[in-house]
């Protein structure tokens, strides 16, 4: 078996093994491994970067959606508020106007009543004074009595009061 018989070749085999192995080690250590490491890291960074960007975009989209939903909700709330406010205003104004109208009407009614009362009083006064004159004239003509105005008035007043 040459492996055992060729003892003389041992130094040469070990020497060349050492030389070639060291050369290979240096090539691997300083050229190949850094290059492969760099490529793999670059790829990992790229993938991580892509994933990060995707996550950021997703977050952004979610924020936009939330913003949109908030805007819709606030718009709806505002509309509700406006509707409620308007309704309230309108009912307020209606009651106010209703009240004002009632007041005006009752004022007019009172005024009219006062006017009527005044007119009646005036009419009554006219009637009394006319009755007194009529009574004066009747008493002069029928009885030839001269009745002064004062007592005629008093007599008419007494008569109407008794009647009423």
């Amino acid at each position: 078996m040459p492996q055992i018989q060729q003892l003389g070749t041992y130094p040469s085999q070990v020497f060349w093994l050492f030389v070639t192995f060291v050369v290979l080690f240096l090539i691997m250590r300083f050229a190949v491994i850094p290059k492969i490491t760099q490529v793999l890291e670059q790829r990992r960074d790229k993938m991580e970067g892509d994933l990060e960007r995707a996550a950021a975009l997703k977050e952004e989209a979610e924020a936009t959606l939330a913003e949109y939903e908030a805007a819709v909700a606030s718009g709806r709330a505002k509309a509700q508020e406006v509707i409620r406010q308007t309704g309230e205003d309108m009912s307020n104004r209606a009651t106010a106007e209703h009240q004002a109208l009632g007041q005006r009407l009752s004022g007019q009614v009172r005024e009219a009543e006062a006017r009527i009362a005044g007119a009646r009083d005036a009419a009554l006064a006219d009637i009394q004074s006319m009755s007194a004159e009529v009574a004066q004239a009747a008493a002069e003509r029928l009885a030839g009595l001269k009745v002064d105005k004062k007592s005629a008035d008093a007599a008419v007043k007494a008569a109407t009061q008794a009647r009423v």
């Binding site: 003389g8 070749t9 130094p11 040469s12 085999q13 020497f15 060349w16 093994l17 070639t20 192995f21 050369v23 290979l24 090539i27 691997m28 190949v32």
Partner: peptide, 21 residues
Amino acid sequence: GLDLSFTNSALAMVITVVAIS
């Protein structure tokens, strides 16, 4: 005094290193 001849074994090692590289 050591025989460090370049042999067919050494050649195979060199070819291996070149092939890997």
